[in-house]
């Protein structure tokens, strides 16, 4: 899978699960690992989404990855 395609897929996964299931970074990695992708590749895609502000880390009794728009004041 191309990186941009993977980034879209990751974003979609988080978007569709919002309010239902919370993903930690390792959960996202495990999810896409099943599709034959390397951990490092998935991690890099997550990092780019976070750096761009599309996704953010949140804290709710443990750290999770959620949609960027949840951050207050930004």
């Amino acid at each position: 899978m191309e990186k941009e395609e993977l980034k879209k897929a990751i974003y979609k996964l988080i978007e569709e699960s919002a309010g239902k299931k919370k993903y930690k970074q390792q959960d996202v990695i495990k999810h896409f690992r099943q599709q034959g992708l390397a951990d490092a590749q998935i991690k890099e895609a997550i990092r780019e989404l976070i750096d761009a502000g599309d996704l953010i880390y949140t804290y709710f009794g443990g750290s999770y990855i959620e949609l960027g728009e949840k951050r207050q004041g930004s």
Binding site: I50, G53, Y59, S63, E66, K70, R71, Q72, G73
Partner: peptide, 12 residues
């Protein structure tokens, strides 16, 4: 308790 705040790119 809590609230989601932080800086771009970081989770802590």
């Amino acid at each position: 308790h809590g609230g989601i705040v932080g800086v771009r790119g970081y989770g802590g």
